[in-house]
Design a binder for these strands. Sequence first.
DNA 1: GCCAACGTTGGC
DNA 2: GCCAACGTTGGC
Length: 156
Amino acid sequence: MRHWLMKSEPDVYPIEALERDGATFWEGVRNYQARNFMRDDMAVGDPVLFYHSNAEPPGVAGVAKIARTAYPDDTAWDPANHYHDPSCPVGEPRWLRVDVAFVERFARVVPLEALKANPALEGMLVTRKGQRLSVQPVSAEHFAEVLRMARALAEA
DNA sequence: GCCAACGTTGGC
DNA sequence: GCCAACGTTGGC
């Protein structure tokens, strides 16, 4: 089992929407490295930190889990879709999506600033400057530490 | 295969 | 809204 962090802009799809929906298609990934993580390394049940990017504050908003492994993202072929990729030949599954299920919404977002300030999270990708991957692996230790921070924030 | 131009991400 | 970082594209 591997652990993950996946970014979503709350203006587009916040953790509250996943809580409401129960599960969702994680579509629109148009980066090869992120796609390869989904294709090669994700398994059903893998835990996911649900991260709010372009948010105030940016940070981890809750937990999800992988509910279905990678399969073709057909939004790439739909000219009307925001994620349409005109260079992608129809029928050729270049881009993939996974299904993600809701697990937990944190009482408070664990802010990026707090992640950066925590020495136990040294090296965590999301804390690195210029790190833009929307799907990234997280070590089991870092994952557990973020959960611990979320519990502490909820009690504060 | 190099690399400049360009587009996007995402914190601030 | 700015802009640094960085992935992608395309001319050569």
